[in-house]
Write a protein that binds this DNA or RNA. Structure first.
Ligand SMILES: [Zn+2]
Ligand SMILES: [Zn+2]
Ligand SMILES: [Zn+2]
Ligand SMILES: [Zn+2]
Lengths: 139, 139
DNA sequence: AGAACAAGTGCAACATTGTTGCGCATTGTT
DNA sequence: AACAATGCGCAACAATGTTGCACTTGTTCT
């Protein structure tokens, strides 16, 4: 089993991004967090990063399709690892984002049947679904 | 046919908000815009509003369920009138938000069959769907 | 291993937006 | 007309987005 750091370095180099300690650390924080990680938590865990570095690192990883945003109900922004192979062109997620209204945790949930939505006279390219409710721990 | 201003004043008073000229003007701008209106456009059309007044007016109307946010793909925030009867407790929209990737317009689109999403071991309370693609004008 | 280049990072600086308090103005009501 | 409750503009501060520039580091090629 390849260790995490090596895997992350590979993800980065695949996209022509240098595998720097900052990026590896951020990725490890995002990947090891049990759910999608809120921005404030990322800030807390990486308080030794310069504000601008955090900003630019997040953007680079978003752009290159290594992490993705899950901004449910336009409150705080959450970040999670991309599971599929995403690129700067498109994030190909076949999952929905679920936010628990009690504990405020956000997680990526796989769906079995792909959601099909048709809108007359338009070409649908991407569908983002954000579900909120109560998670199993909070029921 | 009741004129717009009277209708908006009614919406406001129903929710114990005073029908002030500022609120009526904002509502008229939102309602007369052909699609969901981006924040920047709202700012432009209401540049004579104090920044804080715009902020508080939007919040008051969001809270009371007269307008709603449509923040597709977490870019700019868009606002649109609530068509159903919404309250501060819940916005009961049975429509999806469609953003054209060409002209960047966002619109509320009614769907015929209500979307049903089930996630094991959770209680689903609200589903937000954001679709992006190409609209009829841009095809 | 060392040099050279491209890319990443910290710092400073400024722009935009969110947020609050307070005194004056306005609305809805008696 | 007068009152009470609310709304509004202004000032002030906080948080975040964004850029430029000089210095550091990762990667590649001797
Ligand atoms: Zn992705
Ligand atoms: Zn996700
Ligand atoms: Zn609504
Ligand atoms: Zn809508």
């Amino acid at each position: 089993m390849m260790d995490m750091e090596t895997k992350f370095a590979g993800l980065l180099r695949d996209r022509n991004l240098k595998a720097t300690p900052k990026r590896l650390e951020l990725l490890s924080v995002v990947a090891n967090y049990h759910t999608a990680i809120p921005y404030s938590e990322l800030q807390k865990e990486l308080h030794h990063f310069d504000r601008v570095t955090l900003y630019r690192t997040i953007n680079a990883l978003l752009d290159s399709g290594i992490i993705h945003k899950a901004s449910v109900s336009s409150d705080e922004v959450y970040y999670a690892m991309c599971k599929e192979y995403c690129t700067s062109e498109c994030h190909n997620h076949k999952h929905v984002h679920f936010k628990c209204l009690e504990c405020l945790e956000v997680s990526c949930v796989d769906v079995t049947n792909p959601i099909q939505i048709q809108i007359p006279n338009t070409i649908v390219k991407q569908v983002e679904i954000e579900v909120s409710g109560v998670c199993s721990k909070c029921i």
